[in-house]
Write a protein that binds this DNA or RNA. Structure first.
Length: 772
DNA sequence: CAGTGAGCGAGCTTCCGCTTGACTT
């Protein structure tokens, strides 16, 4: 048994450290937090100093008993959890959960996983910082109080199973308010003037693209300007060149990795984290949940070596970046390749692409600035005071641009700047073509998953480990949905002057195209408006930042954590009580009009399972009729006609094989029912208009697919079959699925073989149940 | 997997932050 037990949070980290420390040390991981408030109830004694009631969650029991056993025999236990608020608390919880003796226990910290950093840490142990632990307890208790007191208000006043929280509710608010701004946005148009000039030289003609420094509000003004250009002389009045430089972006942290992987690779936030986790576990990159842009000295010298070898000494510039994120806790390094000499790795396409992105970003961050020369050319028009301007940009030294350039969120790029032909002051230019194009102002951009993370980080809300889960929570609760919009056609004016004549045209363009953007749902808007009205301080964008200041006070010993919580809780709890008493039930009800058949009112509102349409009042003698709304419909925008259409279902659309076919919409979308079997209509078939022929086609298609899935059937028992599924071949008996053990060929599986697999699996299952 | 929705009332839902597998059809 080793004399020393070292406990870290991540098993991958444990493995690495064990190599550095040798036989005397056994390095284990505790897999993050080991104790938490019980999920069942509030678990905070609000009447007695907010004492938290911690327990060891079921999935942590095993690891705790294992650590207990090793700790008992060890001489010294080294708590090497992260050096931040949560990490300090994990160490404290370990002491509590493992009953560690104070004289046997030492707390150590390191920021980079290198042998020297770890040996250094071992030489400088300390005790647990109880003030920092208290700050974490305040954070934990505050989040519990907010989440577990407001959520039940929503269940009563809006709909069951909803949730509210310090982080998720503000994330939803950002999206709802952005959408409101977009709805209120009135695009304004103006005419942008561009001109192409000819430069005639003895060795040929070249062209110069320019833009007028002013835009015109109306078509009339634009036409008047073009008319003035017909007789005009165009003269270069100035050519200015000045040097400029571009610097590389800092190395990746969690949020910037998510943004760049989204822009450059099209990854969702969840996918980026999944792939990064795989790279981390296989030792390819450093830890992927970090808010620090810091690189270890080892990494800096490795980068210098690689850059010198690949691109030459001129391209090296060692840089240490300073973290801009205000709430940063900086327990880890930036995200970088473990071995910078590996420009690429083996593995599937996603891993390879994400790794290469990280490699480029890291290397570029240690490279020289790019040196540019910017040129501005101003052209005088003899008949009017406006000026044409040409802008050029030449790269004199590419520096870091050789490897990597950060992308931006703006989809519409500026006109390409490039090399300008040689020009001089006083030179006369010949007009080739001048265009006036009507341009519209753009509504504010909708959030993508990654740009929402960026915004949250700027507000200091959420942590690297929670960005991805938060994004998925607000979608799972159906507050927000990720969707595409095809966009609509829009007419715009186009006026052109060439060869002395002016031609006016009306052209069309696509606008409002969106891809994978976050849209608020009806429920999201209703919940948000309710929370903003009744819990304005929690919904304030500065609530978290202010709370963080108080956590810092606690960590510095200037404030007692229970006092801080009390100050918050007393008015907060009053607010909860008052809201329960005073607020009305929110259903987002909207009167659409009257049903022409019965004359009854048609409403749309939130029902127990989501948005519904209702015909008639609930206290009418005849019961009201209900229908669930379809995906893509919303309380706000649904029309009376669309709403009434929902009541045309279920409808019978004829028969097939002497059995009736009916079409309806269920929880999983529109479907056809035939002989008690369900066939999904999919996105492309409209349940209101789908024909008998098309329905039969769908049924036959599904049958064919089912047939193709079958690899094997057995005469002995027709309920058993070998099928082809998403994860390869599997066994099915009645409604249960079974895995086929590795090494067994599904094609040649005998009936007896199947029986054995099923029996073995069933036995294992009952065994598991007994254990529980 | 699959057709709910009023009202009645039981019993349930919920937070944020730290970390990974075991499992899927």
């Amino acid at each position: 048994m080793a004399k020393n037990l070292v406990i870290v949070e991540s098993p991958a980290k444990a493995k690495t450290i064990e190599r550095f420390l040798g036989k005397e040390y056994s390095v284990k991981s505790c897999f993050g937090h080991v104790r938490d408030l019980s999920k069942k109830d509030l678990s905070v004694d609000v009447n007695k100093g907010f004492v938290p009631n911690y327990e060891i969650p079921a999935d942590k029991k095993k690891i705790i008993s294992e650590l207990k056993k090793i700790a008992k025999d060890a001489e010294t236990i080294w708590l090497a959890t992260d050096e931040d608020r949560e990490g300090e608390a994990i160490s404290w919880h370990l002491v509590q959960a493992l009953n560690l003796e104070e004289k046997k226990t030492k707390r150590i910290v390191f920021h980079e996983i290198t042998k020297s950093a770890i040996l250094d840490a071992i030489k400088n142990p300390r005790g647990i910082d109880n003030k920092l632990v208290d700050a974490q307890q305040a954070r934990r208790v505050l989040d519990r109080l907010v989440g577990y007191e407001i959520s039940p208000v929503l269940w009563k006043k809006i709909k069951p199973a909803l949730s509210a929280g310090r982080v998720q509710s503000v994330a939803v608010r950002l999206i709802v308010e952005q959408e409101e701004e977009i709805k209120a946005f009135k695009p304004e148009s103006s005419f942008k003037i561009t001109a192409k000039f000819e430069i005639v030289k003895s060795n040929g003609t070249t062209f110069l693209d320019t833009e007028l420094s002013t835009r015109f509000k109306t078509k009339k003004e634009a036409v008047a300007f073009l008319n003035k250009c017909i007789p005009a002389e165009f003269t270069i009045v100035s050519v200015e060149t000045k040097p400029a430089k571009k610097s590389p972006a800092p190395p990746f942290i969690t949020s910037t990795l998510q943004q760049e992987a989204s822009r450059k690779l099209g990854f969702s936030v969840a996918k980026t984290m999944l792939v990064a986790q795989q790279l981390y576990e296989s030792g390819k990159i450093t830890y992927m949940r970090t808010d620090s842009v810091n690189l270890s000295n080892l990494a800096l010298s490795m980068a210098k070596k690689v850059i010198t070898k690949n691109y030459g000494e001129d391209y090296v510039k060692t840089r240490q970046y300073v973290t801009k994120v205000k709430a940063a806790q900086e327990a880890h390094e930036a995200i970088r390749p473990t071995y910078l000499e590996n420009q690429t790795i083996e593995g599937d396409a996603s891993r390879k692409r994400l790794y290469e992105l990280i490699w480029k970003r890291t290397i570029a961050s240690q490279m020289a600035d790019a040196l540019l020369e910017k040129t501005n050319v101003t052209i005088d028009i003899s008949t009017t005071k406006e000026k044409f301007v040409a802008k050029g940009e030449v790269i004199k030294f590419d520096g870091f641009l050789k490897v990597y350039l950060e992308s931006t969120d703006d989809e519409v790029g500026d006109t390409q700047k490039g090399v300008l032909p040689p020009l001089s002051k006083g030179e006369k230019l010949r007009r080739n073509i001048i265009n006036a194009v009507e341009k519209f102002t753009q509504y504010p951009p909708r959030y993508t998953e990654a740009s929402l993370v960026k915004k949250l980080e700027e507000l200091g809300i959420g942590r690297p480990s929670t960005y991805a889960p938060t994004i998925s929570t607000i979608q799972k609760r159906e507050y927000v949905e990720k969707a595409d919009r095809t966009g609509v056609e829009r007419k715009y004016g186009f006026i052109s002057l060439s060869n002395g004549s002016i031609v006016e045209e009306i052209k069309t363009e696509k606008t409002g195209f969106e891809k994978a953007k976050l849209f608020p749902t009806d429920i999201g808007s209703i919940v948000n408006n309710f929370l903003v009205q009744y819990f304005n301080n929690i919904m304030d964008y500065n609530f978290t930042a202010n709370a963080e200041k108080e956590f810092d006070e606690i960590a510095h010993g200037n404030k007692v954590w229970n006092d801080m919580i009390k100050e918050f809780y007393t008015p907060f709890h009053n607010c909860v009580q008052e809201t329960l008493e005073k607020s009305k039930k929110q259903s987002g009800e909207r009167l659409l009009g009257t049903d022409p058949e019965t004359g009854r009112n048609v409403y749309t509102k939130i029902g127990r399972y989501g948005p519904i349409v209702q015909i008639g009042e609930s206290n009418d003698e005849e019961k009201p009729k209900f229908a669930g709304m379809r995906k893509g419909q919303s309380i706000e925008s649904v029309t009376l006609e669309e709403a009434l259409g929902l009541f045309k279902l279920p409808r019978t659309i004829g028969s097939y094989e002497n059995e009736e076919m009916t079409v309806a919409i269920g929880r999983f979308g529109p479907y056809i029912k035939h002989t008690n079997l369900f066939y999904s209509l999919g996105k492309n078939n409209d349940p209101l208009s789908v024909s008998q022929e098309r329905a039969i086609e769908i049924i036959e298609n599904k049958r064919k697919q089912e047939k193709e899935k079958i690899i094997k059937k057995y005469e002995e028992d027709p309920s058993i079959s070998v099928l082809k599924g998403r994860y390869g071949a599997y066994l099915k008996k009645e409604k249960k699925n079974y895995r086929i053990p590795k090494g067994k060929d599904p094609e040649s599986l005998t009936f007896e073989g199947c029986r054995q697999i099923i029996d073995a699996a069933d036995k294992k299952q009952t065994g598991k149940k007994k254990k529980k």
